[in-house]
Amino acid sequence: MWILITLFAAGCQSVRTAYQNTLAKEAGFLHATMARSLYGLPLVSVYLVLCYFLFGWVSLELDSAFWPIVLVCAVAQIFATYFMLRVFQSGSFALGVLLAKTEAVQAAVIGLFFLHYTLSLTAWLGVVLGVIGALVMSVKWKNISSFHKDTSLLLGMASGFCFAVATVTASMASHSLSGSIITSAGVTLWCVLVIQSIILCAIQIVKSRDICAPFRHSLSLSMKVGGFSSLGSIAWFTSFALVNPALVKTLGQVEILGTLYYSKRRFAESISKQQWVGGAMIIASVVLVVIS
């Protein structure tokens, strides 16, 4: 079941990221980052009500470890999204998404320490191959000697790390609750979005000195970002709660196919042979993970 859920999440995220890239150009990084949480909250709230009736509620103690973990998850996801949008400005749409995909192997390493998840040799090969494929697609080899000076590379790696932290903490938060794991994942996602909405809306309001600022820019496009983001996040958080997050994120590399499509068709960016080779490696990594 987690495979189908993850594939759905990857598809939604591919579309959302394309819209978010456009929104960032029209309304700025802050609004594009905020739209993902604020405009996705209504749909996630409806989903949580459905979870309550279908699967039951969960225990939610005020002194639970859930709250600090979910706070870390929310903040890490804010930085991850912000860094990726910055890569779009300094590099390209495809580059930003590809570099963020290093989160799979980073999530695997972090998960070893905090979730005590282990991977089979085949799964490790899949995770590592996927990351190498993403780097092959994104790195300009003629500039490899000065890669540490490449803003796009550094921001992309930082985005991947923050996404990995968010992925692992989302799983930790869901498993810290007692009750249906499906409802637990929904509660975790809802709390993350509320925290993110409060933080980002407050920053935008203070910065613009306009209490209605979160609703004044590209309303239609913001709703599209929020809608696809909420659908994808529901699927992501559910998968994180069901299996090792590293496997989920490696399978989620199929989003690369959508990235290449939008990069070429929507943003008129050319796809090089190097990127096609890297894409083939990523597909092979997905196959290895599914086999494992």
Score class of each variant (00 low, 15 high):
F53D: 03
F53Q: 07
L54G: 01
F55N: 13
F55I: 00
F55G: 00
G56L: 10
W57Y: 07
W57M: 09
W57A: 15
W57Q: 10
W57H: 06
V58M: 04
V58S: 01
V58I: 15
L60G: 09
L60R: 08
L60V: 13
E61R: 08
L62R: 08
D63W: 02
F66H: 02
F66L: 03
F66M: 07
W67F: 12
W67N: 08
P68Y: 08
P68F: 09
I69R: 05
V70I: 15
L71Y: 00
L71M: 12
V72Y: 04
A74H: 03
V75W: 01
Q77V: 14
F79N: 01
F79M: 15
F79I: 15
F79S: 13
F79H: 04
A80L: 05
T81P: 07
Y82S: 11
F83L: 14
F83R: 05
F83Q: 09
M84C: 11
L85N: 13
L85W: 02
R86G: 14
R86E: 15
R86T: 04
R86F: 03
R86S: 13
V87Y: 07
V87D: 05
F88V: 05
F88H: 10
F88C: 07
F88G: 05
F88N: 03
Q89M: 13
S90R: 12
S90V: 15
G91Q: 06
S92C: 01
F93M: 04
F93T: 01
A94F: 08
L95R: 12
L95Q: 12
G96Q: 12
G96P: 04
G96R: 09
L98N: 11
L98W: 14
L98M: 14
A100N: 10
A100W: 03
T102Q: 06
T102A: 08
E103Q: 12
A104H: 03
A104G: 04
A104Q: 11
V105W: 09
V105Q: 04
Q106N: 01
Q106R: 00
A107I: 06
A107E: 06
A108K: 06
V109K: 01
V109A: 11
I110E: 09
I110L: 15
I110N: 10
G111V: 11
L112H: 00
L112I: 15
F113P: 09
F113C: 05
F113T: 11
F114E: 04
F114P: 03
L115N: 12
H116V: 04
H116C: 01
T118K: 10
L119F: 11
L119E: 11
L119N: 11
L119K: 02
S120L: 09
L121G: 03
T122P: 00
T122E: 12
A123D: 07
A123C: 01
W124Y: 14
L125A: 15
L125Y: 03
G126P: 13
G126N: 08
G126Y: 07
G126I: 13
V128P: 06
V128N: 04
L129K: 00
L129M: 15
L129R: 05
V131P: 10
I132D: 02
I132W: 02
I132E: 02
G133Y: 05
A134K: 04
A134M: 14
A134N: 07
L135P: 10
V136N: 07
S138T: 14
S138D: 09
K140Q: 14
K140W: 00
W141C: 01
N143A: 14
N143T: 12
N143I: 00
